[in-house]
Design a protein around this nucleic acid. Structure first.
Lengths: 98, 98
DNA sequence: GATGAAGTATTGGATATCCAATTAAATAAT
DNA sequence: ATTATTTAATTGGATATCCAATACTTCATC
């Protein structure tokens, strides 16, 4: 991308992905790869998961399966609203790039 | 936002906003304020515009009106495709936060 | 024409964001 | 059992991203 790397959406995406389906780190990585084209580095995904855990937004079980906490669900809703407000005209974007 | 600042979308948004309607810096700032809730600092918007100009993606006339160049339109399409691919399930997000 | 308001711009950070490199553990395959 | 593969995790940056502070210019209003 010449204009903009569009970093900064990754943590939100991880929260969104886990919200759709509890997953382990590798699964989350593959889902992100599908979306972005390139797989995230381990140095990207695990620190991000750790951070979300420290904030009490996700939990991890003995199988290393990550899932949203109650607070995580709340935060996802807030972040989702924020995202949808910023990109309120996302339907136009979708049309534009078809 | 407790989970994620979601920085990194601003330059893309500026390109998108200018693509919809050629605007001056203040107009772009107001549009961003509508979307994000807070107005961007001058130290955010003008360096971003300068950078896009240096990359040949936007032009500015004597009235300080910014518009996309031909190359800028191409880049916007590329970035838009990238964005829509990352958020391919954005319709679900919209439903989720209603 | 003077004063205030709005727009334009630069500078120098602070922080967020992400990655490459490395290590270790668990799992699968031979 | 040994080897290869996959998964998990940490560390220490590099860079992107954005802002606050400041200054200057243009425009409107009195």
């Amino acid at each position: 991308m010449a204009c903009c790397e569009m970093k900064g959406y990754l943590t939100y995406l991880i929260l969104w992905i886990i919200g759709k389906k509890s997953s382990n780190g590798a699964e989350i990585g593959r889902e992100l790869e599908k979306r972005r084209g390139t797989a995230p580095s381990p140095g990207t995904i695990y620190p991000a998961l750790k951070d979300l855990r420290n904030k009490g937004l996700i939990d991890v079980d003995d199988d290393k399966n990550y899932s949203l906490t109650a607070e995580g669900k709340k935060e996802l809703s807030i972040a989702c609203k924020f995202f949808c407000n910023i990109f309120y005209d996302v339907e136009e974007m979708i049309k534009h790039c078809k």
